[in-house]
Design a protein around this nucleic acid. Sequence first.
DNA 1: CACCGTACTATACACTGTACGTTATCGGAG
DNA 2: CTCCGATAACGTACAGTGTATAGTACGGTG
Lengths: 216, 216
Amino acid sequence: MARTPRNTLSSELIVRTALDLMECKGTDGFSLRGVAAELGVGPMALYTYFRNKNDLYDAVRDHLMALLPAVPEDAAWPDQVRSVCRGLRLLMLQHPCLAQLLAGRPLSGHETARVAEGLLGVLRNAGFEPEVAARTHTTLFTYVLGATSWEIQMAAERRDPEAWRRLRTTMESLSAREFPTVVELAPELARTTGGDEQFDYGLDLLLAGLRVRTPS
Amino acid sequence: MARTPRNTLSSELIVRTALDLMECKGTDGFSLRGVAAELGVGPMALYTYFRNKNDLYDAVRDHLMALLPAVPEDAAWPDQVRSVCRGLRLLMLQHPCLAQLLAGRPLSGHETARVAEGLLGVLRNAGFEPEVAARTHTTLFTYVLGATSWEIQMAAERRDPEAWRRLRTTMESLSAREFPTVVELAPELARTTGGDEQFDYGLDLLLAGLRVRTPS
DNA sequence: CACCGTACTATACACTGTACGTTATCGGAG
DNA sequence: CTCCGATAACGTACAGTGTATAGTACGGTG
């Protein structure tokens, strides 16, 4: 029966294969059976290493989070915050599946904690009280998550010609009498669905708001 | 064979049934077959009204967006912005499926455009240039989306005792030497995963940042 | 050598979305 | 009133999915 030898599998290997599959087939096209097939193994073999699909998702997420660089030591805190947020966005853009892995599951895992530690440390060192630091951390994280998820979603839509055409036509069919501002700003809206500038704009708004509350 | 009479179905009815099912079984437990069964009809009957599952999702999203109230006329623009953002969050909390419906698909549909028109109008009337208005709109929308999705996700996690217990234990098993700040702020972090205060904190940061750029 | 835990396999179930071809019903034309 | 064609709903089928359960062969240990 050409049974595969005994210790060919490992969590590491499975996670890497899963990640590869997600990147090339998209999070939707991803399946446990696909990973197993890629590894030349029955679907149930994976259950030796992961209790279910969600556990594998968590492992892949932590695997990706490990790629985030450490916070730069010698910089003013607003620049450190910017650096962390931009880093996370960049990683999400490089690995679009990360958006759904972050949004759909709670934060857990060693590397994920490392990232939180970095940002929280920056805020505490800047002099923010514990509660304000925590609130700010959540705000920044959810902003990055929302903005970048949206950006990725929009980019994907733009790549699918059918969906893109339908979107354009429905946009253009909007009554200029009923929705004058939307129609007027349609080009601007199309331009601001993503990109570095758009991301930094929102980030700078948050930082400007934070500056007002900066502790002495 | 007791075939169901001819015009018992309609887009309206299907959308309402789909929404009911999503609310009580969650977006994951939702299925076309479930909707069809609820209506006492074969699965394929729905395809007369919707080309596929995603089309039905879009219809449900627009159906929900129709529930958003209009922007209050007599108020300063920051309060108008607050009102729109809070309204959207509230709607997402009342209908948790809306989070995934907004995040996973592009914006389209009449009611969705209405909401965008409201917010964009406020910003334009406040004197913001077209590009700034568009950028601000995207920023606000993605903040609300990210913050509220996260809040919903966390609340769901807290409701599942098994998942919640596992989360607590992994949190507590984090080395205080390696992650001092995370461990120190664990209670604050747990408290700031959602709630009106947390949402308003981030929203006020954005508005404070905006005030700096307010046109004369 | 015998043994046992465990890494992997096989089979099976209850689902999913949806493509295809059929049939019965109803509104309108004659 | 009768008839007919469009079409709403049907049944069947397919290629998938995650995973529960039970079985099997291999590797390290006694």
